[in-house]
Write a protein that binds this DNA or RNA. Structure first.
Lengths: 218, 218
DNA sequence: TTATTATTTTTGGTTAGCCAAAAACATTAT
DNA sequence: ATAATGTTTTTGGCTAACCAAAAATAATAA
């Protein structure tokens, strides 16, 4: 259908615009795609002709409905593959992104459907990021990194993004298990460490650890 | 490492030369790759410069050790993916080739290793074609289609290439199961149907069915 | 061996995707 | 409002992969 380059542009515009139709500029795109702005100018003109974006000279670019739909299907493929690589083939979460960057360009709906089925048609990947469905619909959630939670938040632990044994042991020690409810008591001013209550016990979490814990804000 | 185009040239040269270093000509390559001979001339010159082939003007092209090694790794990826798609994801054998044509270009040794492991590191795909190992070594076998067997051959049924339920029922009815030993009694002159003995019973197999049965000639 | 046919190579030209440098345009700070 | 800075566009150029048409070679048949 379209080239890998076009797919990468659409995906990047989608991510930079934060999923809503926000305008994206050439500099941002150039930086993300590792090309110079002149190259982006050329590219967005073509994307405009192909009806994937609306490009207004010296102003910016935003996805059309078609562009958005296409971007969503790429994001879907990417996240399905990431989840598959991690859950079915035993890759670490640090490894899957790079491989999925290549796999996402294989356009075969049946393949993605089969992978998705094998995973139980998940709506979220283990990063907590939503996986668009076949129609491009995204299930909303309040998934955030624990490091983004504020005082008094009540949350539920949904997953982790660091799968090192060191980290998993750290979690175990503090009885922080998937599904557990926690509430944020204090966020220390000077080092951003988080004091929270989990399983009736008070624990203090380093900001580094909080970066790798995905919670649902309730 | 190299482009998809180069990989396709190497793979095609490998197949056309039948795995040994036989010389391949431009016309053959052009036909297989759906390009015109002029394009092939250009390409093989480049492959020569890259030391993947020895190209002799107006004569032909053959793989170097490097080219052969590279081709073998592409064949490995292709057959691992085909086997994986069929055995793990439930694709039919008629569907896997096309998808594997894309997947084979993803260069990630760990990925192929994991897929291979999950399959039990097979040396043959369900077509009966050998899967080169990581070093490019191919396990020899006497796998042939039953349709290629001759009178008096003793064989063992190794697999099928048609996975339709109709065909599987046909096999069941004739008690032709994987692993069974058979011996060829007669090949009918006028319609090429095969009379063989399997499990002490004499059965007659249509040429169409024999096309889809892989046996090992003993 | 000469004519015919097939294959290969050369030449000139295209498109996608990129870059560098310079020019045009916007934005921000003074 | 003007200068300084940042962003965007234009222009000219590059490489990989392709094609078409013509010229050169090789192979085959008469």
């Amino acid at each position: 259908m379209q080239s890998e380059t076009i797919e990468n542009y659409l995906k990047t515009i989608y991510h930079l615009s934060g999923g809503n139709g926000t305008i994206v500029n050439n500099k941002q795109l150039a930086d993300k795609l590792n090309v110079i702005p002149a190259t982006v100018t050329e590219a967005v003109k073509k994307l405009h002709d192909l009806k994937f974006v609306i490009y207004e000279k010296s102003y910016g670019t935003r996805l059309t409905a078609l562009g958005s739909k296409t971007a969503l299907s790429i994001v879907r493929r990417h996240r399905i593959w990431e989840t598959y690589l991690a859950n079915e083939l035993g890759f670490g979460w640090d490894e899957v992104h790079e491989i999925a960057e290549e796999l996402e360009h294989i356009k075969n709906d049946k393949l993605i459907r089969k992978l998705s089925e094998k995973l139980g048609n998940p709506s979220f990947d283990p990063h907590g990021d939503p996986i668009p469905d076949e129609k491009g619909k995204i299930q909303k959630s309040n998934f955030i990194k624990l490091s983004e939670a504020k005082v008094k938040y009540n949350c539920k632990i949904m997953g982790v993004t660091d799968h090192s044994t060191a980290f998993l042991k750290y979690l175990e020690k503090h009885e922080l298990i998937i599904g557990a409810s926690i509430s944020i008591k204090i966020i220390e001013e000077f080092d951003n460490s988080i004091v929270l209550v989990c399983q009736k016990k008070e624990v203090s979490i380093s900001p580094k650890a909080a970066e790798s814990i995905i919670v649902e804000a309730l």
